[in-house]
């Protein structure tokens, strides 16, 4: 199992993701440079990290979606490869069309940096496979454009297909309006594509994967990817 973490100009959580892979999970991890056109062949899970790729010019994630590495990531995702977008990485996935929807400015117009609770709405993704359905995670957010939006008909599609992966909630798991920090439609904090292998979320699991940081709840996201890769590897072996 090898994670690859993309660095765009303006990414600032790439080192944190590499740290979690290498020093918390003790797995090899590869930095991936945005200007390259191919992924390292041994990478079997790609992470698009948080930050401010290309200064958030035009719209957050919009220019990064045109970066040289993106066709390779699209191809990897098309083959079913697991791709995780965290915060700005989620914005890049939305702008590149790998995930549905769009990001609006936070309802408050403020950059929000705080801990929130999210409820796991789908465990059928590589990044939530180790979670219990409905499990509540305490994770930090730090963003100005996290107000997730889709037109109402598309929201119905997302619900019907189980593409809503995380929703903001109170500590007891209630997805109340008060628990929604940024005005996101339906309290959506994370979604996946129809196949489930591409996931984006606004909270930062890499910032809370060690007790010293105040929460370890984020680690289950990375452990899920590990478990998913192990299961996929076992399936490949038994199919031989």
């Amino acid at each position: 199992m090898k994670f690859g973490v993309v660095t765009f100009p303006g990414s600032n959580c790439d080192r944190d993701c590499l740290h979690v892979a290498e020093h918390v999970l003790r797995l090899p991890a590869h930095p991936i440079w945005y200007a390259h056109r191919v992924l390292p062949p041994e990478v079997d899970c790609v992470i698009l990290p948080g930050g401010f790729a290309y200064g958030d010019y035009l719209r957050a994630g919009a220019i990064a979606a045109t970066a040289p590495i993106m066709p390779a990531i699209r191809e990897f995702a098309g083959r079913g490869g697991p791709v995780l977008g965290i915060c700005n990485g989620f914005q890049v996935l939305v702008e590149s069309g790998l995930l549905p929807g769009a990001m609006l400015r936070n309802r408050s117009l403020r950059f929000i940096c705080t801990y929130v609770h999210v409820r796991v709405e789908s465990v059928n993704t590589p990044f939530t496979a180790s979670c219990r359905p409905g499990q509540v995670l305490r994770l930090p957010i730090a963003h100005a454009e996290g107000n997730y939006y889709v037109p109402p008909p598309l929201l119905e599609d997302l619900r019907a297909r189980g593409q809503i992966v995380f929703r903001y909630c109170d500590p007891d798991g209630g997805a109340t309006p008060d628990a929604n920090p940024n005005g996101a439609l339906d309290g959506i904090a994370g979604v996946c594509n129809t196949r489930g292998n591409v996931v984006g979320l606004m909270p930062h699991p890499e910032r809370c994967s060690e007790a010293i940081l105040g929460s370890e709840d984020g680690r289950i996201i990375f452990e899920s990817a590990l478990r998913h890769a192990a299961a996929a590897g076992a399936a490949a072996v038994s199919a031989r």
Partner: peptide, 9 residues
């Protein structure tokens, strides 16, 4: 369509 990434939209 955005010409890239058909699914999302």
């Amino acid at each position: 369509p955005r010409g890239k990434g058909k699914e999302a939209r």
